[in-house]
Amino acid sequence: MHKPALPGEGSELLSTRIRIVLVETSHSGNIGAVARAMKNMGLSNLWLVSPVSFPDETSYARSSGAADVLDGARVVSSLDEALADCVMVMGTSARGRKVPWPVIPPPEAARKAHEATAGGDVALVFGRENSGLTNEELQRCHFHIHIPSNPDYSSLNLAMAVQVLCYELRMDYLRSLEEGEQRPYLGSMTAPGDEGWDVAPAPVRDVEGFFEHLEQVLVDVDFHRRDKPRQLMTRLRRLFQRAGLDQMEVNILRGILTAVQKAAGKPAAGAGESTSPAASREQEDKHV
């Protein structure tokens, strides 16, 4: 009853050619949290520019299973060294600048990053926890990325900001799979008939049989009168049709109705078509 799992590792370009660069991170736990955010989304290329403390126990504890990302992290002494062989650099920025710079939102940044990986490595640069990137560092970037957070509380934790960008990179990668291979990684599964649903949609004849059975049971228990129907069955029909029943759900509902009739001492309606409670439970066990 579940959709196929999404690809676990992502593309090689996503994993290796997009590097996450953290500048002078002061809290080693944030480095571990960033590693976790990266691995969640299939990235592994982490660069650290002059971290205050790394590696240490705190960073590994906060990584929650992403120790391999930390093990492979490159520690360098300058931003120049981290960016030297990159073909594109993007830096996160929450502040306006005196000299306007190209600013893009996270989804566009992900698209541009993926396109640029065809020519080499792309760096996404994140600044210090308390002050971000300096003007000089931001001027090293081809684009500034702005995360449109709540203006009344716009400060994001470092790992949160990395997670937002890594998520957009992951989504852009999955969309490329949809276009290239027609695989339903991003499609929803909300109703019978969607790929991954375990039981076929109920055909109209069976749903109509259920409505007839339902009406008879409501009459049997003195809840409904056919000579004064009001809009009861109309509204119940709308309710169940809005739900979009599958075949198993119709069988279960008819089994319940049969049990209600039995408890009320009434003969089962449409006995040849309805499903007994025992049969419904047996069918349910096969699918739930």
Rank of each mutant, 00 (worst) to 15 (best):
M1D: 09
H2S: 15
G10T: 11
E12L: 13
L13W: 09
R19L: 06
E24V: 01
T25C: 11
A33S: 15
L43Y: 09
L46K: 06
A61P: 00
R62I: 00
S63E: 00
S64V: 15
S64H: 11
A66Y: 07
A66H: 02
V69E: 01
L70Q: 07
G72S: 11
A73W: 02
V75M: 08
V76I: 12
S78P: 04
D80R: 13
A82C: 07
V87L: 00
V89M: 12
M90L: 15
G91H: 01
G96R: 15
R97C: 05
K98T: 11
V99W: 05
P106M: 04
P107F: 08
R111L: 11
K112A: 13
G119M: 12
D121I: 01
A123C: 09
L124W: 12
V125R: 07
V125K: 08
G127H: 03
G127V: 07
E129Q: 07
T134I: 00
N135E: 13
N135T: 10
H142V: 00
H142S: 14
H146F: 07
N150C: 11
N150K: 02
Y153V: 00
Y153Q: 10
S155P: 00
S155G: 01
L156S: 05
N157K: 07
L158E: 03
L158A: 11
E179W: 10
G180R: 15
E181D: 10
Q182D: 15
Y185T: 03
L186K: 03
A191S: 12
E195Y: 12
W197A: 08
P201C: 01
V207M: 08
V207Q: 10
V207G: 00
G209M: 13
L214A: 07
E215F: 05
E215Y: 05
V217T: 15
V217C: 02
L218H: 01
L218N: 04
V221F: 02
V221A: 03
F223H: 09
R226N: 09
R226S: 09
L236D: 07
R237E: 10
F240Y: 14
F240D: 04
R242S: 12
R242K: 15
G244Y: 04
D246V: 01
D246Y: 05
M248I: 04
M248H: 14
E249T: 02
N251Y: 14
N251K: 13
L253V: 03
V260N: 06
Q261L: 04
Q261A: 13
K262N: 13
K262Y: 01
A263N: 09
K266Q: 13
A268Q: 12
A269G: 03
G270H: 14
G272K: 14
E273M: 13
S274K: 06
A278M: 10
A279D: 15
E282M: 10
Q283M: 14
Q283G: 04
K286F: 02
H287K: 14
